[in-house]
C-alpha cells in the first residue's frame, strides 16, 4: 500500500516524459513526508517500462483488454485496486486519460480532485498545488486535502532522470462493457486540417518566392508540424486557402505557432493570438507580430529555416 500513486502512461515501450515528471515530483513529496510511491501501468510493455522507475512499488496490469486505452477497463481496474489500496494522492497527467479518468476516479473513491495542476509543493505544514484556470489567464493556489486525485499538465516541471528498483506486482484487469472498436492512426494523406495541428510553421510574404516554401515544408517535417500561412501567400496561389490563418481563414490554437515573415496585421492576429506559444521571426523589429508573440527574433527567415531544420534533424538522429 503506497501513499502516492502515479498512474503511468507507456508509449513505444517506455514511460512517457509526462509520467516521468509525475514520478519525479511524487518522489520529492514522498521524501519530504516519508511516504511511499507506487506506479501503476497498463499493457504488455508495462513491466519492462516501469522496472526501473523511481517508485517503491510498481503495479502492472497485463491483459488483452488493456493493450489499447479503454476508459471502462482502466477505470474499473483503477477503482478496484485503489479501493483495496487506498492512497493519499493519485497523480495523472492531464492527457486524454487524465481528463477521462481523473474526476471519475475522485467520484468513485469519494475524494477530492484538482485539475490543470502546474506545480505541487510543500510549504510549511501544507501541501500546495498551483493550477492553471481560465485558459491560462489566471492561476489558483490550492491546499491539497487529505486525499485527492490530481491531474498535472505535462511539461510543468522537469523530470529528474532518477531511476529505482520498485517491487513489481501484477494486478488483474477488471471487466467493463466498454469496447474499443478500432484504433485510428493519424492520417498522413489528404489535405491537412491546420486547426488540429499541434505545431504550425506559418509563413507570410517574407517567404518571397514559392520555391522557398520547400524550406518551410522541410522545417515542418523536422519539427513535426504543418505549414500554414497568411493571406497574401494564398492570394499568390502558393498555398491552398485551407492553410490560411486569420479573419477570413482559419482560427487556430496550436501548442506552438511559429510565425515566419508575417507582419501581424490585425486580420492575421485574429486567427492565431490564442495559440499557447507564439514564436515570431521577422526582420523588422517593429512588426506588430512581436506584440502578441512570446518570443521573437529579427533573423532572416530564409537563413533561419534551413539552419533550424538542420539542428532539429541532427538532434532526431
Amino acid at each position: 500500500m503506497a501513499d502516492i500513486v502515479v498512474v503511468g502512461e507507456i508509449q513505444n515501450g517506455v514511460v512517457t516524459d509526462a509520467t516521468q515528471e509525475l514520478l519525479t515530483r511524487a518522489r520529492d513529496l514522498a521524501t519530504a513526508r516519508s511516504r511511499s510511491v507506487a506506479v501503476l501501468a497498463f499493457g504488455k510493455d508495462a513491466e519492462a517500462a516501469v522496472k526501473t522507475a523511481d517508485a517503491d512499488e510498481a503495479v502492472v496490469v497485463v491483459d488483452q483488454a488493456v493493450e489499447e486505452y479503454n476508459p471502462g477497463v482502466y477505470e474499473a481496474t483503477l477503482v478496484t485496486w485503489l479501493t483495496e489500496n487506498p492512497a493519499l494522492l493519485i497523480l495523472l497527467s492531464n492527457t486524454t486519460m487524465g481528463m477521462d479518468l481523473g474526476a471519475a476516479l475522485a467520484a468513485r473513491l469519494q475524494i477530492a480532485m484538482i485539475a490543470y495542476c502546474t506545480d505541487l509543493r510543500i510549504e510549511g505544514s501544507s501541501e500546495l498545488a498551483t493550477c492553471q484556470i481560465y485558459g491560462g489567464k489566471l492561476a489558483a493556489e490550492v491546499e491539497l486535502p487529505d486525499r485527492a486525485v490530481v491531474t498535472v499538465i505535462p511539461g510543468s516541471w522537469a523530470a529528474s532522470g532518477r531511476s529505482g528498483i520498485p517491487m513489481v506486482h501484477r494486478f488483474n484487469a477488471q471487466p467493463s462493457p466498454i469496447s474499443v472498436v478500432k484504433v485510428i492512426e493519424p492520417d498522413a494523406s489528404g489535405d491537412v486540417d491546420i486547426t488540429r495541428a499541434d505545431i504550425l510553421v506559418s509563413v507570410g510574404r517574407g517567404i518571397q518566392d514559392p520555391d522557398n516554401l520547400e524550406l518551410a515544408d522541410e522545417l515542418a517535417q523536422a519539427i513535426g508540424g504543418v505549414v500554414s500561412c497568411s493571406r497574401p501567400v494564398v492570394d499568390a496561389g502558393w498555398l491552398p486557402r485551407s492553410r490560411q490563418v486569420g479573419k477570413s481563414g482559419q482560427t487556430v490554437k496550436p501548442k506552438l505557432y511559429l510565425a515566419l515573415g508575417i507582419s501581424g496585421a490585425p486580420e492575421h492576429l485574429q486567427g492565431m493570438k490564442d495559440a499557447e506559444l507564439i514564436v515570431a521571426v521577422n526582420s523588422d523589429e517593429n512588426a506588430p507580430i512581436f506584440d502578441v508573440a512570446h518570443y521573437g527574433a529579427t533573423a532572416d527567415i530564409l537563413d533561419l529555416m534551413p539552419a533550424l531544420t538542420e539542428k532539429l534533424n541532427g538532434r532526431n538522429g
Partner: peptide, 23 residues
C-alpha cells in the same frame, strides 16, 4: 475554463457509476 476541481463529465459519471468517455 473554470473547472479547477475536475471536469463535470467525470464527476457525473463517477457518481452515477455508469460508463463514460471524454475528449
Amino acid at each position: 475554463i473554470d473547472d479547477l476541481d475536475g471536469q463535470i463529465a467525470g464527476w457525473v459519471a463517477g457518481n452515477l457509476e455508469v460508463g463514460h468517455a471524454s475528449v
